[in-house]
C-alpha cells in the first residue's frame, strides 16, 4: 500500500487530507513544516508527497526547490489556498506534478494521487 507524506502547518487540514487518503487505503505520515517534511521525505521515502505552500520554516516553494536540488524524485502534489495562475506555473516549473486548490475536494485529490503513483507517471 502506498505511503503519502502530508506536509501542512494546519493540523485541521492534515486531518482532512489524512481522512480522505485513509478512506482510500493509503498510509499517511505527516509533517507540520517544510523542513521536517524534507527530512521525512529523505528518511521515509514515501510514494508521494502532498505539500502546502504557506508554511513557517521552509515554505512549499522552498521545499520544491530543495527536493529538486537534492535530486529527490518522489512525485509532489501542491495543495494550496493560493489560486493564482502565476503560483501554479511556478510550482509546475519547480517540478510539482499536480497543483490543487483548497478547500480539499476528494474527487480532485484521489485521482491526482493515483495518477502520480502510476508507474508511467514517474519521471
Amino acid at each position: 500500500m502506498s505511503t503519502i507524506l502530508i506536509i501542512d502547518d494546519s493540523s485541521f487540514q492534515r486531518t482532512l487530507i489524512r481522512k480522505t487518503l485513509t478512506n482510500e487505503q493509503f498510509t499517511c505520515i505527516e509533517a507540520d513544516n517544510g523542513r521536517l517534511g524534507l527530512e521525512m521525505a529523505e528518511r521515509e521515502s514515501p510514494d508521494a508527497i502532498i505539500v502546502d505552500l504557506l508554511m513557517p520554516d521552509l515554505n512549499g516553494i522552498e521545499f520544491l526547490q530543495a527536493i529538486q536540488e537534492k535530486g529527490i524524485t518522489i512525485p509532489v502534489i501542491v495543495l494550496t489556498s493560493d489560486i493564482q495562475d502565476a503560483t501554479r506555473d511556478l510550482c509546475l516549473k519547480l517540478g510539482a506534478r499536480s497543483f490543487l486548490n483548497k478547500p480539499l475536494r476528494p474527487d480532485d485529490l484521489i485521482p491526482a494521487i493515483r495518477k502520480v503513483l502510476e508507474p508511467s507517471g514517474d519521471i
Binding site: 494546519s10 489560486i83 483548497k102
Partner: peptide
C-alpha cells in the same frame, strides 16, 4: 488552527 486554515483558504481565493 482550523479557523486560521479556513480564513487562509478564503483570503487565498480573494487574493
Amino acid at each position: 488552527d482550523g479557523i486560521r486554515e479556513l480564513v487562509n483558504i478564503g483570503v487565498g481565493k480573494g487574493a
